[in-house]
Amino acid sequence: MWMDDFRGIYYIVLKDMKTYYLKPPAISWGIVFPVAWILAFYLRNPRSFEDLVPGLIAMTILFSTTAAEAVVINFELRLGSLERLLLSPISLSAVLLGKVLGGAIFGLIMSTIITIGSVVVLGLYPNLFYLILIIIPSLLAFSSLGALLCVLVREVFEAQTLLNLPRFLMIFLCGVIRPVSSMPAALEYIAYGMPLTYTINGLWQSFSASPGTMILIDAMALMGFFILFIFPATKLLYRKFE
């Protein structure tokens, strides 16, 4: 049974990459939007752009993974193809995990491009191990958040609209534009209830000259968010087909 599930996850991810990564909603929300934000920040203040790099990489992860989830889940919900996957000898959790990994890999491609671009253009020296340690759980956490919200609706545009609520809330509260520490105490508490804060904290440490061990807590918190999102997402999907 495990072998069936692993095989299913692998082929679902491959098929999603082939089928959905170049769909217009994935490109507009997952690629164009983060790139436009990055350019806007760069053009506004190129000298202190370096300080914004962790936040902008985190935002790229958030937008690319969630945009991809809306495509890989809602296209299939609308066309009934998800039902086809559930007819095959693969568990529902494996199908959803395949979908989450599909979004995560899209996010990995985008965040790698943005990270390499930032490092090369600005001459930065991040800690590669720390980068991997924080980016991987971030991809999983945001992809599962996308999955959770996407299974609630049917159409891709509904999913993208719904996803904008946590996306913009996190952009403004989690330290993309302004450090969390400079916010009022109440907003700071809210910020620590959101996964993007931990991604940005972890990325800051990856780019700092003397990274600390706090990154482990950030990574664990993000894995906690992944579990927190994936279980209700599975439950909701199960109820959809009950």
Binding site: D4, K15, K18, Y20, S81, R84, L87
Partner: peptide, 27 residues
């Protein structure tokens, strides 16, 4: 094998790729 009421294979994949994908899912 199940033939649902609505044909729900993948619009983007070719006929052959659709069958190959289903074959992969079934091992």
């Amino acid at each position: 094998g199940v033939v649902p009421e609505f044909s729900n294979l993948y619009d983007e994949l070719s006929a052959l790729d659709n069958l190959l994908f289903v074959a992969q899912l079934y091992g």
